[in-house]
Amino acid sequence: MREISFSQAIVEATAEEMRRDPTVCVWGLDIGPYGGAFGCTRGLYEEFGPERVIDMPISELGYVGMGVGAAATGLRPVVELQFSDWITLPSDTLINQASKMRYMFGGVLSVPMVLRAPVGGYLAAAGQHSNSFESMFAHIPGLKVVLPSTPYDAKGLLKSAIRDNNTVLFFEHKKLYETKGPVPEEEYTIPIGKADIKRPGTDVTIVAYAFMVRKSLAAAEQLAQEGISVEVVDLRTVSPLDEEAILTSVKKTQRLVIVQETWRRCSVGAEVAAIVAEQALDYLDAPVVRVTAKDVPIPFSPVLENYVLPQEADIIAAVRRVLRA
């Protein structure tokens, strides 16, 4: 099968959906002739023109809010934030408007908007360009939150997100954009809310998502050389969570390590641990171990950043710990 990069997968998914559905449009900063800060809209302006690929002023509350209004009235906007860090600016329109409109209005309106935004660290980009805020948004009823880890998943999930009648936050890890993987030429979609076993195993379950899937797979590979069989479950979607996939794997391996790049407190990992505690405690042979960022803003200096963010060695140590217990 041919291989394409994660960012090419995003471009392809968007272009295919724009060809399929004339109501799909794209807007954001520098997404027109410039092609997007990470190249995720390359060629769209040339193919679809300035009516459907619209460069915005630096007005995040304004243009994400416009996405909500346009989505409520017949368009399917795919709105890009240049970095997800300043999702804080349009947070009102996401948290108080988009997430609630269908419910609060008794089902008479819906907001089929996709907000795409790069997340993550490991780039010495410091405290305002390294964040992963998915836990905050997974907390909000009415928003779907997707974080793919491969080009294949990115393409299939973005196509589903664009077709979804709910608002979808689609977070893309910056360290993944250049990574390549097999993506078929033929059309396919991947359902939102379904996890995927990226590596089957029998001794320990690692639940991870986004860039941490790659780190977990690398750790699993190393551990395999010592005869430890790790199953890596890629959540792909953190809201809604695929509880069944988590529980099935944990019931099989009876040991759980959760790996996430973001902070520990009140996070996706905390939710996963709670679900397992509520529904599969009897199956566990060891306490759950979480590998997360330390609960501080992401510091600039690489020595500090590497200390704060999860490393492969931390994952390996965590797996050893649940096996020793």
Binding site: A126, G127, H129, F300, S301, V303, L304
Partner: peptide
């Protein structure tokens, strides 16, 4: 202290 860098 190296926490901010160029932008901070």
């Amino acid at each position: 202290k190296g926490k901010g860098g160029s932008q901070h």
